[in-house]
Design a protein around this nucleic acid. Structure first.
Length: 381
DNA sequence: AACAAGCGCAACCGCCTCATA
DNA sequence: GTATGAGGCGGTTGCGCTTGT
């Protein structure tokens, strides 16, 4: 069925193009007094030679009184990136989370500013995965720039509150971390990271969950409180490490997440992979800002606290029952991950999120905002 | 100073969704 | 169940401004 355009070639030609101040005034005046129940009839009633659609657009994107003008804040930018990673190009849905910003404005901002930033970081702005073409990354040529990139990367992966999850919203939690980190690691040491890249490629080809991924999914479903915690962020990184022998085995430090002051720094360090990086951050543990951090108090890929703090939960041994403090200041999961602990609503929200249900809308609240990675390859039946 | 290229953003176009008859 | 149309949405365009040469 082919429909004629709403403002088609009627007898009277409607005006197009930029709005004049006089037209704006007429539209504002009319809507202020009469409202806008019917956009089609509005132009005629308001004395405007425009189509209803044009009026609606002008009002919603420009004239509405509650529109926020000016530059986007860093927080808004972070939020947009996070929401986009979950929702994709659903600009109107993204806009519902940024009061005063229109979908059009967000779309424009993303396509002009954020897209550029992500590309410079070697991240595909559409999929939020690393680009296979590393030519852009190669432009980041020194350590200082790398650290800056890692910090930006961290901003994307986590909101700077004490919630949020690193990783994909579905079956590739580990890969998301890997996806984001490997280009940076590769830049410094292509040899070391080649195995990781190979692993990643293999994982990306696999459509089905591995048993460990399945276990992770269960853990997230069964322990929403823990899953939003900083400790849980470490858990996911730890799981990632355990499946990345090239990076995680042997003594020394390992890839992990540092959660000082709940800012959650994404650390991508292994001495052999990042020579010299350790000394680049004089006192990472004391830092309140996000930073590239080196940890060296674990072997075999173990991450502070999570694996060592106690594994009393037989069903989910990687969840700690202890309320231990980690050596880096984070706190272990404080309650066992049992189904009985889960509130129905929370469970449903988590399920929707993990299954990428269309009804899922990231929300703010007691449980915080859950940052996750978009992935179209979900196979969870 | 003049021109070209790049950028930002308002506005448009056409398709989709959903309510209603 | 089907047709219709208004409203909504995302992709794209084009114009004006800025920056670089």
């Amino acid at each position: 069925m082919v429909r004629p355009p709403c403002c088609g070639d009627d007898d009277e030609k409607v005006k197009k193009g930029p709005w004049t101040a006089e037209e704006d005034a007429k539209l504002v005046d009319y809507i202020t007094n009469k409202g806008h129940t019917n956009w089609k009839s509005l132009p005629k009633l308001a004395g405007l030679n425009r189509c209803g659609k044009s009026c609606r657009l002008r009002w919603t994107n420009y004239l509405r009184p509650d529109i926020k003008r000016g530059k986007f804040s860093e927080e808004e930018e972070r939020l947009i990136i996070n929401l986009h990673s979950v929702l994709g190009n659903k600009w109107s849905r993204i806009a519902t989370h940024l009061s005063g910003r229109t979908d059009n404005e967000i779309k424009n901002y993303y396509n002009t500013h954020i897209r550029k930033k992500l590309l410079q970081m070697g991240i595909d702005p559409q999929t939020h995965k690393p680009r296979t073409d590393h030519s852009q990354i190669a432009q980041i040529i020194n350590l200082t720039q790398l650290i800056g990139a890692a910090q930006q990367l961290n901003s994307i992966m986590m909101l700077n509150n004490n919630n949020g999850i690193i990783g994909n919203s579905n079956n590739n939690n580990n890969n998301s971390v890997a996806n984001s980190i490997i280009p940076l690691l590769h830049l410094l040491n292509p040899t070391t990271t080649s195995a990781a890249s190979t692993f990643l490629a293999q994982q990306q080809q696999q459509q089905q969950m591995t048993s460990s991924q399945e276990e992770l999914l269960l853990a997230r479903l069964l322990n929403p409180a823990g899953a939003g915690s900083s400790a849980h962020q470490e858990l996911f990184c730890n799981q990632f490490l355990n499946t990345l022998p090239a990076l995680a085995t042997g003594g020394g430090s390992s890839l992990m997440v540092n959660n000082n002051n709940n800012n959650g720094a994404l650390a991508t360090a292994r001495e052999s992979a990042l020579p010299g990086l350790v000394s680049a951050e004089a006192s990472p543990e004391a830092s309140s800002s996000t930073s590239l951090v080196h940890h060296n108090n674990n072997v075999n890929g173990g991450v502070d606290g999570v694996m060592e703090a106690g594994n009393n939960n037989n069903n989910y041994p990687h969840l700690s029952n202890n309320s231990s403090n980690f050596s880096d200041g984070t706190t272990a999961l404080s309650s066992p991950g049992t189904a009985a602990d889960v509130d129905d609503n929370q469970y449903e929200a988590w399920e929707k999120m993990l299954l990428m249900d269309d009804d899922f809308v990231p929300t703010f609240g007691d449980s915080g905002f859950f940052s996750s990675w978009k992935d179209d390859d979900l196979v969870l039946e």
